[in-house]
Nucleic acid binder design. Structure first.
Lengths: 226, 226
DNA sequence: CGCGGCGTTGATCTCTGTCAATACTTGTGG
DNA sequence: CCACAAGTATTGACAGAGATCAACGCCGCG
């Protein structure tokens, strides 16, 4: 088997695979091992034919778009157990954004043809995928809402809260990638990110290198809500 | 027949119905007539059981969410021949947003069971819906990008360009609903909208009542890009 | 040791939201 | 038919958040 039991556990966390159930999932993944990517390596480029979707087994990847002026806008960052580009496959066959590994990573690719076969054989799957797509839609809408309604420090606080495992008490959190990347993800400039981080000191956030020490995650969550 | 030939023509413009073909479409719509809504009337509320989707026959409707602080955020505005809430139906059975008629309108409701049957009978339909949903996703991603990267006047310019039929030359465009609604759709306050409209004068946009006269739509498009 | 990338800090500026006052439009009732 | 009220749009003054530009510090690496 190509996936270790630990990897398998990670992969099946993805809502899409959960919806499929283990049998179909196993059929679709087959025995192809995940491909290893080096930090900075491209997974796919905007405009390429979209012939498959991806699931992160290990590491991190970013989805981004290049504007005409060359500025890069990070659309999403994916963690282990998350799938991406599933829906893009259905859109004219081209990826609407580029993806790149932001750390060394292992990423599983599932090709479009397998998926198509699976859906044709099991129409319920299509419903599950529609539901997954609908969840994503909602997340995006949430994000737009956040962008307007929350200040930079609040968005950062929210980011930390979402990445923390614990729900309360003190937390020590690694910043998994460059601060400029997080900044872009949160819709602000690196300078603003830096300053906003400073403002979080009053709610018990201390920064050291690429770690943050949070005195009480619950307090931070409260701050993020506004 | 419940739909007049003109109405029928409008309804079949919707990509979803086009994908179904006339026979399935007719079966799904049956002979129920569209319901008439008064301006301001609610179509459905956030959190209600999602037991159907909608197609605008005539008039306009908005999809919106209420934030905790009571602020209303307009997520989308729908025109005749557009369907909405198709995908939402598959998500846990609740509408994730509210919808309201913004003008007197006639709106067709197609119940979820019919759609489900149609998809089960014709799995290809699911792909079409996934494609539609993926277009929405892309629009939203674009929107986030715009919100972060473009100024208010640029977003308005973009709105006009997207609504204009021509690609170049002079255009006279109707503002089909209240300016405050457009403002909310574009993520700004009515005051900002008003001022930003004024700033568009330098790129050949004149406002009169609820019409805008655009000297050269191509020039406006260039301005929107930044 | 010096260079380059990343992050921080400081000064300043621009945009947009906020609050408030004022027109303009439309509909209503006398 | 007019007067008034309510809703909608514009305009002005002001404040705050974040962007921008520029300088500097930190650290890893050749």
């Amino acid at each position: 088997m190509a996936l270790s039991p630990q990897d398998w556990e990670v992969v099946t966390r993805a809502p899409l695979f959960k919806a499929m159930g283990p049998t179909i999932t196993r059929t679709m993944i087959g025995d192809r091992p995940p491909r290893a990517y080096a930090r900075g390596e491209t997974v796919f480029e905007q405009g390429e034919p979209a012939d498959g979707f991806f699931c992160i087994v290990d590491g991190w990847a970013k989805l981004y778009r290049l504007r005409e002026d060359g500025e890069e806008v990070v659309v999403a960052i994916f963690a282990p157990g998350e799938t991406f580009a599933e829906v893009a496959m259905f859109l004219g066959g081209r990826y609407p954004a580029s993806a790149e590994a932001v750390s060394n990573a292992r990423i599983l690719k599932i090709d479009a043809a397998s998926l198509r076969r699976a859906v044709m054989a099991e129409p319920q799957l299509a419903f599950d995928m529609l539901a997954a797509s609908s969840i994503r839609l909602r997340q995006l809408v949430d994000e737009i809402e956040q962008l307007k309604a929350r200040s930079a420090p609040q968005r950062i606080a929210d980011f930390f809260v979402k990445h923390a495992s614990a729900a309360s008490g003190p937390v020590r959190l690694a910043l998994p990638y460059e601060k400029a990347l997080i900044a872009s993800r949160l819709g602000m400039k690196p300078e603003s990110f830096s300053r906003a981080l400073g403002k979080l000191a009053v709610v018990g956030v201390a920064v050291e290198r690429d770690w943050v020490a949070i005195a009480d995650i619950a307090r931070l969550a409260a701050f993020a809500e506004g």
